[in-house]
Nucleic acid binder design. Sequence first.
DNA 1: CTAGGGTTAG
Length: 616
Amino acid sequence: MMSSLGSIAKHPTITLIDALTTLKELKQVHAQLLANGLLNDHHLLGQFVATIALHNPKNLTYSDQLLTNYDTPTLFSFNSMIRAYSKSSTPHKSFHFYNRILRSLNNLSPDNYTFNFLIRTCAQLLARETGPSVHGALVKYGFENDPHIQSGLIFMYAELGCLNSCHKVFGGISSPDVVCQTAMVSACAKCGDLGFARDLFDEMPGRDSIAWNAMIAGYAQRGKSREALSLFYLMQMEGVKVNEVSMVSVLSACSHLGALDQGRWAHAYIEKNKLRVTVNLGTALIDMYAKCGAMDKAMEVFWGMKEKNVFTWSSAMGGLAMNGFGEKCLELFSLMKKDGVQPNEVTFVAVLRGCSVVGLVDEGKEHFSSMKTSYGIEPEIEHYGCLVDLYGRAGRVVEALNVINSMPMQPHAAAWGALLNACRMYKNLELGELASRKIVELESKNHGAYVLLSNIYADSKKWDGVSNVRQIMKSKGVKKIPGCSVIEVDGEVHEFFVGDKSHPRYNEIEIMLGEISRRLKLFGYVANTNPVLFDIEEEEKEDALCKHSEKVAIAFGLISLREGVPIRIVKNLRVCWDCHEVTKIISKVFNREIIVRDRNRFHHFKDGQCSCRGYW
DNA sequence: CTAGGGTTAG
């Protein structure tokens, strides 16, 4: 049983209460004290309220009832309730207790603790109007110079996305301590001003581990993975103590990059330095291995974890779905429920994707409807998107369209995108046109929609349609996103943009590309040389040979990685059909496992087959 | 007896 150090040598009954954790025990002791007339002390009541609220955050009604049984609860009790509700799933109830303080018979008045908890509540609620009112109120009470309040306000305004207000609060602090400065670094990073965050960080005297972690996390969260990693190396160079929290961000950066070698290095670092593998850290490891296509390692970490929370389960399930292991994803879902972990909306995204990748339409439908009926989770737009994908992938495009037409919210581009992808797979020109028209209405610069549509036209040999699409793209100024593939060799990340010949070993790469071409022809592969088709792939081709960035990266992998080592590529766009065919054949004729993570999912190529079975 | 900065899944 947990017992907090703070209670040692205090009132013996408080120590007793503090040591209790279950509601049952607390209720029993409470009844006993009451029966023996020992509960006349408001401090004891307050301790009950606080302890119950602390250990039973999901069942605050008992604490609530306790308070109503006493006519004059202490400020401590009210504050404890506000704190408890600020972290609960119903944070707004905090305000009920704030009002009770204001209306109390014994003339209580909110203190700095009260406001600190209310600030958390506002942050939690993303209360863009109430937050500033609470700020105004605490100023009236004269707490604006309390450093706890100041750092809290910076945190709150960052959550609300009000960087200006953060600056105002921060600027009003005469000599901000390291805590407030770190809060400000984090706030700027969260709101996207990494430059200011970094300047502040660089000039921070007495930067501690937390400050470094804040800056590294700031980069990692904004997708600046390389910057996050290089700052982490600097942190080590400066001899700052690295902890679990640092490694969570480092792993997150590796996940983003698909940098398996660096991720493995980070894992080894954690073990070597005996860092505690907390739930967060374990989850970050699972996510890293999963997003680097090493699902077996991810599951090894998963099974080795004693404590797993909803993040842990959802990460593992999402990873399995993304890697094409739909059935395993669903098995894990059953285990999760058996384990008593409550699934949330993110878990269901993974479940639905798991169903989708293996074509389990009926099962997916059931899970979808169970969200609300069994778990009280209202399906969000993402879940409807998954449902469209579920039908679409299975070739049931009309039902997919019905989902879009009957969803309770305005369909987003991703829903139409799922339908469009299905139309490409099943060559449904009519619906494909509708879907892409809708996408373009919603996102006039969505390059992928035009590409998929022109693919559909090309598949049906409607060249007029193809050139029409091309003209629309030109007139609307839709820019192609340059394709880029990343491959890691000996811990070094090599980036290949389409048509980019700047790599120091490009000559060798070119020779290898020739060799690939030769062996593909021997195998009987006929390159797709239709000039119309050429122009419509996701990437521009820079010459007559199809040299999409992943092919160049694969060629580089073949010359630089030892035989038998799988080639792992991370691509920023979807893999095109031609590259997909070619990669399948390369995996066979070069007897090499190739793992490609594109913007949607993984393709594990082995022995001429791909794990996606042609659906992506 | 209650508070301050950094961490994870879509």
